[in-house]
């Protein structure tokens, strides 16, 4: 069965955000792009199982996430050790994207358990609803809410964001605070 133009265009359109999702899960861009490549290949091969009219982007994120965890398992690691892999990656390639703040956010995300990290990213960065994130992660909506809540709290501590920052501190000051919090 031929892949429709619409499906192909949808894949192309999703690449930038899939790359961002993969990068925020892994913390390293070369591995993240490998994961996106595998996701696109898999999506193409299984295009017949996509239901037109439903959200292609959520479907692709589900594939990427499943692929990520299945790779971790194949490598003989427990899923929990995703965190370990993340740390090692950071040690090798800190701040790949050049922006000083990226490294701090990477390190902060690294302090979160993998399940909290993905829940937070899906809801707070990828723009999925709690319900969609729950579908992607195959857990209850309440579970996603509590993971996101815990992840936010932890990030607030680590990044030194407090309630007085009504409009957010200026980026330089914020980065300095985060730096201090991470390295003390």
């Amino acid at each position: 069965m031929q892949v429709s133009d619409e499906f192909r265009d949808g894949l192309i359109e999703a690449i930038p955000s899939l790359r961002a999702f993969a990068f925020s899960l892994i913390g390293r861009s070369d591995r993240a792009d490998d994961l996106v490549q595998e996701t696109l290949t898999k999506a193409w091969a299984n295009h017949h199982s996509f239901t037109p009219g439903t959200k292609l982007r959520a479907w692709l994120y589900t594939i990427l996430r499943n692929e990520f965890y299945s790779q971790m398992r194949k490598k003989g690691r427990e899923v929990e050790d995703v965190d370990g892999a993340y740390s090692r990656n950071l040690a090798v390639h800190p701040e790949q994207h050049g922006h000083a703040d990226m490294g701090d956010m990477n390190r902060a995300l690294n302090l979160l358990p993998a399940d909290q990290r993905e829940a937070l990213i899906l809801v707070a960065a990828s723009g999925f609803s709690y319900e969609e994130a729950a579908d992607i992660c195959e857990v209850a909506v309440g579970t996603i809410k509590s993971r996101v809540n815990r992840a936010r709290k932890r990030l607030a501590e680590v990044l030194g964001v407090d309630g007085e920052a009504e409009y957010g501190p200026d980026p330089a000051a914020e980065a300095a605070i985060a730096h201090t919090a991470l390295h003390k």
Binding site: P16, S17, R19, A20, F21, F23, S24, S29, A32, H97, H99, D101, M102, M105, N106, L120, I121, A124, A125, S126, L155, L159, V161, E174
Partner: peptide
């Protein structure tokens, strides 16, 4: 901050 991080890659 998360979106800034994410969008930088996107």
């Amino acid at each position: 901050r998360l979106r800034a991080y994410y969008d930088e890659v996107a």
